[in-house]
Design a protein around this nucleic acid. Structure first.
Length: 571
RNA sequence: GGGCGCGUAGCUCAGUUGGUUAGAGCAGAACGCUCAUAACGUUUUGGUCGCAGGUUCGAGUCCUGCCGCGCCUACCA
């Protein structure tokens, strides 16, 4: 038994997330967490909302609510949606928690004491109309390069030229449109990552088992241009964690807050504290997960995220941890994902293009989405959600292969023997062959999960489901029954045990369905991952009553598919 | 511009340190079964592994060049 710490990238607070966000971090993290729990490891699975920053402030303003209320209600909504998708977080926290305030301020203090914080006086654009400093991308104007009139202060979308806000012709606020802007001096804190370049590079160079995507992004940042650059970790905002040295004020930076990308990863740690308090767990337990001097030596820590988050998790957050010179736990494995596309293009919140988490659950149960998303996870490259692929994946894999297997057995049994599982009277050669075949595949499934290879795991799981149908075809209980009902019953008993096996090993992928099978068929609850199939496949005994379940999965018809496709195509 | 990744059957992809006849799912075809959501099973059609060179006894796999596609390039989070 090992101790496994798992964090999923924090979803940003400003709205409902789409399927791409889901498959890029939370969903595979959940599957991994569930698998590790089945393997009887001690698992702590943490997530939270990422609540700070300009977009949240503006979204709250848009909704005409106080930022606090806005975040609370969005947190509630995101929490409900993660429950809807059966994401098994041990705790779903908030980056605005008081625990995160304290930790973030302490990290800043430690970095400062280690001479890794620099105060930089810089010039920023201030909008008098909006009465706030504007981040570069919130300034619009004409591109000096190509003349596009909605170029942003960081980059022109049309000609892709990198810009400074001051390069723009006729700059205006993207929030109000006001041209009443001025350049003001403002002091900010920078983390001196450049000083930690060697250390980070050494650390990353040892991670040869990480996905190429993850290490190549990290190495690019380490070696690009003059190497790793220092990074501003404060902003001129109201909403956020006030800049302090621990509990003490930070002279010259009054009224400023830490940048979300400084405080968001720290929330992984803070959320663990929140978890401890919320569940009345023995004080100090959170530190056994995060402090090497307090028991975290044996923890293996996995992070899940989409590729946009990789630089922060491979460089900035490790720099914060290493730079603190305190014995915090560093990540052991970073699983990075590419993007999920929607019908060949990007998901778009503003254009309503693609399927969002709330809409998905209104259409179909979560397992349908989970299965397709996991079996098509964008691991090696971007992958594409199409309704055709979704329909085919759900109908073939879930309905025809798994659902129909359960259906044919339960219905046959019910009609011949009644709603009671018959006895296993002999373990014949057919069954021995199946056990051998399954043992290999279940252990391969397990290997794929240990390697965090989600697509391969799904493909293997599907193979395992298929074996059930192959077995029935070979054993032909419907034929045997006519001559020898007892022997047919024995075949049926074994088949029920196959369903039992499936309900356990498929749980990380389609938990709701698996729980339903266990419930309906009266299987023992709380089983661990089967290590010895020979004995495991004799777990379900004869005499057990069961309810014939309705079909586990409804097929998606062509008409439905077309309706869905039209509905979500965007404006 | 630079960096990274990808290019394998009609489609989506897997191919471990180079080693016989290149695999899976879907789609197509034939046959079988009739317990089942017309579901399932078996067999089968289909590939000069992007192109051109090179290394090697042997290259989908390694090297060089080229072509095509995608992603990233630091103030969105």
């Amino acid at each position: 038994m090992a101790r496994i710490l798992i964090t999923s990238a924090l979803p940003y607070i400003n709205g409902v997330k789409h399927l791409g966000n889901l498959v890029g971090s939370q969903l595979p993290a959940d599957t991994f967490a569930r698998f590790m729990r089945l393997k009887n490891h001690e698992v702590l699975f943490i997530c939270a909302t990422d609540e700070h920053g300009t977009p949240a402030e503006l979204a709250a303003k848009e909704a005409n609510t106080e930022i606090n209320d806005f975040c609370s209600s969005m947190w509630e909504s995101q929490k409900n949606l993660s429950d809807g998708f059966s994401l098994s977080f041990d705790y779903f926290g908030r980056s605005s928690s008081k625990e995160n305030h304290a930790l973030t301020q302490n990290f800043a203090k430690a970095l400062h004491e280690n001479n890794l914080i620099e105060e930089v006086l810089e010039k920023q654009i201030f909008s008098l109309t909006d009465n706030r400093f504007l981040p570069d991308r919130y300034i619009e104007g004409e591109c000096p390069n190509c003349g596009y009139d909605k170029a942003r202060g960081d980059q022109c979308e049309i000609c892709t030229k990198q810009l400074e806000p001051t390069d723009l012709i006729e700059p205006r606020s993207a929030i109000s449109g006001s041209k009443n802007l001025e350049i003001r001096e403002t002091k900010h804190l920078y983390i001196r990552q450049s000083l930690m370049r060697e250390k980070l590079e050494q650390w990353i160079s040892k991670k040869d088992d990480w996905p190429i995507l993850t290490t190549s992004i990290a190495k690019k940042w380490l070696n690009d241009g003059e190497g790793l650059k220092d990074r501003g970790i404060t902003r001129d905002l109201k909403w956020g964690i006030p800049v302090k040295k621990g509990k003490d004020p930070w002279p010259g930076l009054e009224g400023k807050v830490f940048y979300v990308w400084f405080d968001a990863p720290i929330e992984y740690i803070a959320a663990t504290e929140e978890w401890e308090k919320a569940n009345d767990i023995k004080p100090g337990t959170w530190e056994t997960w995060w402090r090497l001097d307090k028991g975290a030596e044996d923890v293996r820590y996995f992070q899940f995220m989409a590729k946009d988050n990789i630089p922060f998790h491979t460089l900035s957050f490790p720099a914060t941890i290493m730079g603190s010179n305190e014995p915090w736990k560093l990540v052991d494995y970073i699983k990075g994902f590419n993007w999920l596309l929607y019908e060949g293009g990007k998901f778009s919140t503003s254009q309503g293009r693609g399927v969002f988490m709330d809409q998905a659950l209104e259409l179909l149960p979560s397992d349908y989405w989970r299965w397709w998303l996991l079996s098509n996870a964008p691991e090696t490259s971007d992958s594409d959600f199409t309704w055709e692929s979704f329909q085919s994946g759900v109908n073939k894999d879930l309905s025809d292969v798994l659902g129909n297997f359960v259906s044919r057995i339960t219905k046959f049994t019910n009609s011949k023997f009644g709603a009671e599982i018959p006895e296993l009277t002999k373990f014949d050669n057919n069954q021995v062959i199946i056990v051998t075949e399954l043992s290999g595949k279940v252990s391969s499934l397990s290997d794929h999960m240990n390697n965090v290879e989600i697509r391969k795991a799904c493909a293997e799981l599907r193979n395992i489901w298929t074996i059930g149908n192959e077995y029935l075809q070979t054993a032909e209980p419907w034929k045997i029954y006519k001559e020898n009902p007892i022997e047919a019953g024995s075949i049926i008993n074994f088949s029920f045990n196959l369903i039992y096996l499936y309900s356990i090993i498929s749980e990380p992928f389609i938990p709701d369905t698996c729980n339903r099978i266990i419930e309906d068929l009266g299987f023992p609850k709380g089983s661990a991952w089967p290590e010895d199939l020979d004995s495991f496949l004799q777990t379900v005994k004869g005499g057990q009553k069961f309810n014939v379940p309705e079909n586990l999965f409804q097929k998606i018809t062509d008409e439905e598919r077309e309706t869905f496709a039209a509905k979500f195509s965007g404006s």
